[in-house]
């Protein structure tokens, strides 16, 4: 027993020692944060994305592979606002890595650097799967991404002081390109202002708020509750008074509900990338928003 224990300790010291020379290990809960960490970290970070744009971010499982990756992470970058509450606690509790616990510099919660909207006035699960802190899908507004980028660059510099200048420089360059890109998207998306739409889940609320679109309904009767025919029928009736020009769903949503609605309301279905990787075009954060604007414009005509 004692011998076995000693062997394990020796092995662990040996392995973690060799890992110290490698780049900063980033464990990103969501693809948007892995893309952002790569933008800022460049070749000084090694980024692992725990999920993909095809997975419902509310229904991720604490897979063994995630626990294994969290074990060697120097920095965990997650959304927060309880988006990862169904799996991240299990991963952190079993990873045996004190550096990435909440409260430590190695734990970064993107949503705490922006203002959340959609904070429920009353906390009651009868309202569906509500998030007490507000809507967690903050990355659908690029201005939020800009704020989070600044905070993330600072955090990386704090954890890896040897490369602080590198992170600062890369962030400055990113911030410049990002603010130019935002201006361009805003110009391109000007015709979308005031356009009404129906969405599957309240996933893109920050996007609508940024570009001035108006979501007049969601296919899910309550957040997280599967769309029902009776609820969708109401939405179809509502078309007479508040006509939506399109029905929008994310890359991870089952398209059947949107198709059902589109057929009856006679509006186009628009599938948007939920995050980076959600469509073949959305390869990084820039092309993610390029693709969103490109897909929304024709449907708004």
């Amino acid at each position: 027993m004692k011998f076995l224990f000693r062997c394990l300790v020796a092995l662990s010291i040996g392995l973690s020692g060799s890992a110290a020379f490698a780049a900063l290990n980033v464990f990103a809960c969501m693809p948007e944060w892995s893309a952002l960490a790569a933008e800022i970290g460049g070749d000084k970070v090694s980024v692992y994305a725990a999920t993909t744009a095809m997975q419902d971010p509310h229904r991720i499982e604490a897979r063994p592979s995630l626990i294994a990756r969290a074990r060697s992470a120097d920095l965990v970058v997650c959304t927060g606002a309880e988006l990862e509450i169904g799996w991240l606690p299990v991963v952190l509790d079993n990873a045996g890595n004190g550096k990435i616990r909440p409260g430590q510099p190695g734990y970064f919660e993107a949503s705490s650097f922006v203002v959340l909207t959609g904070v429920p006035e009353r906390l009651d699960r009868a309202m569906g799967d509500v998030h007490p802190g507000g809507n967690p899908h903050v990355h659908t507004d690029p201005r939020n991404v800009g704020l989070i980028a600044a905070a993330l660059a600072q955090r990386m510099a704090q954890i890896d002081p040897a490369n602080a200048a590198h992170y600062r420089q890369r962030h400055e360059a990113f911030a410049q390109r990002w603010s130019n890109a935002i201006s361009k998207w805003e110009r391109d998306a000007a015709p979308l202002k005031g356009v009404m739409l129906v969405q599957h889940h309240t996933y893109y609320d920050y996007l609508w708020n940024w570009l001035g679109l108006q979501a007049v309904g969601a296919l899910e009767p309550k957040p997280g509750v599967e769309p029902t025919v009776s609820h969708m029928t109401q939405l179809v009736t509502q078309q007479q008074t508040r006509p939506a020009k399109m029905v929008v769903h994310g890359s991870y949503n089952d398209p059947r509900a949107s198709n059902w609605f589109a057929e009856r309301a006679k509006v186009p279905v628009v599938m948007l990338p939920a995050t980076v990787g959600g469509t073949p075009e959305a390869k990084d954060l820039f092309s993610f928003f390029d693709d969103i604007v490109r897909r929304l414009l024709p449907a708004a005509k």
């Binding site: 592979s65 626990i67 294994a68 045996g96």
Partner: peptide, 15 residues
């Protein structure tokens, strides 16, 4: 007591 190996594959020992 549990120990998780620092490997990309999940490998855990416990006593």
């Amino acid at each position: 007591a549990k120990w998780l190996a620092p490997t990309p594959i999940f490998l855990e020992f416990g006593a």
